[in-house]
């Protein structure tokens, strides 16, 4: 096999890696943010519930959870490995993202809520117009880290047979006896994806910084 085809074979897994990430990360974002706001504002029972949810989800290795969720899902609704794997990673990420957003919400001072209510905004309006825009700025650095983790954890779906980068590297290393080259190629692609993502989020963070005098 010539070297060009060797690289190409592994690189063509990038579409799957991106696909898994682009499903897992946003679904984890939507769930995580929703859970975070419910955990903070929806009363004691919700706080308790989501604290238990987060403790369990974060206490189990992602690969073990992935297998559990995958076999649950593929048994119940007959999803393809790609979709089942992506959604599972999204659910796993939701617990971590929830903690990022919960921390960010709590670090917006409670007085901001009070000031918002004092001019007659409802709680929902205050969350939307005052808490959310401030919390999102605080959350970006932590979220950037989680985005990197999800990109890297997308490699876990190789275990359920999705032909993404790692899976392909493994196959071609077996057939060509070139494990070092195969895995460093995979490593390079993952690194590039993570690097670009973090740079973009860095820029977003700078753009959203609120001006102030030193």
């Amino acid at each position: 096999m010539d070297i060009g085809r060797f690289f190409q074979y592994i690189a063509s897994g990038t579409a799957y890696t991106l696909g898994v990430t682009l499903i897992a990360l946003p679904s984890g974002l939507i769930l995580g943010m929703l859970f975070a706001f419910l955990a903070v504002y929806a009363g004691k029972i919700a706080t308790r519930f989501f604290s238990i949810y987060s403790t369990i989800m974060r206490g189990i290795p992602p690969i073990v959870l992935l297998f559990i969720l995958y076999f649950l899902m593929s048994g119940a609704i007959n999803l393809t490995p790609f979709w089942a794997g992506s959604v599972s990673l999204g659910i796993i990420s939701s617990a971590y993202q929830m903690e990022i957003f919960r921390g960010a919400i709590l670090s917006v001072s409670a007085d901001q809520m009070m000031a918002a209510r004092a001019i007659g905004l409802s709680k929902i309006q205050a969350i939307r117009t005052v808490i959310f825009p401030q919390m999102i700025r605080i959350a970006i650095p932590g979220w950037s880290n989680e985005a990197a983790i999800v990109i890297k954890d997308s490699s876990l779906v190789y275990a359920i047979g999705v032909p993404e980068i790692l899976r392909r590297a493994q196959l071609i290393s077996a057939s060509t006896q070139q494990p070092f080259l195969a895995y460093t190629t995979a490593a390079f692609i993952y690194f590039t994806l993570v690097f670009i993502t973090n740079r973009l989020l860095n820029r977003a963070e700078q753009k959203l910084t609120i001006p102030s005098n030193p």
Partner: peptide, 20 residues
């Protein structure tokens, strides 16, 4: 309450402007 509060202005010790 939201209806009531818009008719009562409040100024706080620590200003509490919306920072963003």
């Amino acid at each position: 309450e939201d209806q009531v509060r818009q008719h009562i202005g409040m100024v706080f010790q620590n200003f509490l402007l919306f920072n963003h």
